[in-house]
Amino acid sequence: MKHFKFHSDFGSFLQCGLFILSVILISGISISYGQNRLEKDSVATQADISPSGSAAPSSNTYSKSPKKLPIYCVDTPEKKISLSFDAAWGNEDTQKIMDILDKYKVHVTFFMTGGWVESYPDDVKMIAKRGHDLGNHSQNHKQMSQLSAEECKEELMSVHNKVKELTGKEMTLFRPPYGDYNDTLVTTAKECGYNAIQWDVDSLDWKDYGVDSIIKTVCEHKHLGNGSIILCHNGAKYTADALETLITTLRDKGYEFVPISELIYPDSDEIDTEGRQHPCNSSTALSCPFICLDKT
């Protein structure tokens, strides 16, 4: 009888353990999905980065992507980069982050979910008041490639209207949750007045590897160069502690921080096969074998 009870208890314990393990695995896959998308779409490969770490100089000869891509980075001859924070959970370090940004006179972009906006309306107002970009990160942080165009629009405009009511500002930048997108999402975002934004440098702060890891991952990243967009999270454990050194180190490398709204070309649909946005102008239109869609 005792022998039977042991096996019964052990079986229950094993089932419980397997269930917990499956939950952990599913969560890990979901979080890393967007990070892997960068490599899947072959964005900003090492071939595009010069040995000095700066992006390759502007060129009118590039291949436009046959599929609709978000903006991963920007083609610019200037050493300008953008720092961005996804705000989907947590708020303990937002004030510290804002104070460090103020200290170094750095303006960044915050991509906020509807839930975060509803939970921290005063912080949304503070971000706007201090001159940072307000970006849309969807209402419910869903994998939006699985949604219809109408559902995508609802996810976008729900947050848009909340932020406009709080700040009076019209957001124009959207980051897909998990980095997950398809043609429907990119097109719908454009119809709603948004440029879809990804990143080419991931701080990996969401993995909680520590301050030194964040600094090294960003500052020694093989994709770091002119026009890079850096991904961070305001709710990650070590981000605020790493921020000051991150800023000073990148400035020592000669980079200037600008918000994404000042880095991208808002009216250009010219995105090459590696996710790099190019300006839409007369020289580009003449030299490239495709029509510049925003050219009047």
Rank of each mutant, 00 (worst) to 15 (best):
L224D: 00
F85V: 09
I229Y: 01
L18M: 13
A56P: 00
S261C: 04
G11P: 00
Y209C: 08
C280T: 07
K222W: 09
L69T: 06
N136L: 07
N281M: 06
T172R: 12
D252R: 09
F10S: 14
Q139M: 15
S203F: 02
C219H: 05
D183A: 13
K67P: 00
E220Y: 14
D41G: 08
T184F: 00
I31H: 10
V258D: 00
H3E: 12
S22D: 07
S82Q: 00
P259Q: 06
A88R: 04
I71A: 02
K222R: 14
G168S: 11
M157H: 10
G227K: 04
V159P: 06
L134E: 03
V117T: 12
L185Y: 03
L246D: 03
R276H: 07
I24D: 11
I264M: 03
G135I: 00
S42L: 10
Y33D: 09
P279V: 04
S27A: 15
K164W: 10
A196Q: 05
D241E: 14
G131Q: 11
H278C: 02
G17Y: 02
Y255N: 01
D93K: 12
K253Y: 11
C73Y: 08
G193W: 08
F13Q: 13
D48I: 09
L156P: 05
C232G: 04
Y194R: 03
A88Q: 10
V258P: 00
D267M: 10
C288F: 02
N136Q: 09
E154H: 12
F19D: 08
N91Q: 11
V124L: 06
S82I: 04
F4N: 13
K142I: 10
K164V: 08
H223N: 15
Q15R: 13
A236T: 01
F6H: 14
H160N: 12
N195Y: 05
D200L: 05
H233Q: 06
L231A: 05
Y72T: 01
L286R: 14
V23R: 09
S63D: 13
T172M: 07
E92M: 11
A44S: 13
P289F: 05
I81S: 01
D99P: 02
V124Q: 04
Q95C: 06
I31Y: 11
F111V: 03
G115A: 09
G210Q: 07
F4I: 15
S213W: 06
G210P: 02
S203I: 04
H3Q: 14
L224F: 00
M1F: 11
T296N: 13
A56K: 05
H137V: 09
K237F: 07
K237M: 10
H221G: 04
K222F: 11
I127V: 15
D9N: 14
I260L: 00
F290C: 09
P177S: 07
D241M: 08
A55L: 10
I247R: 01
S148Y: 06
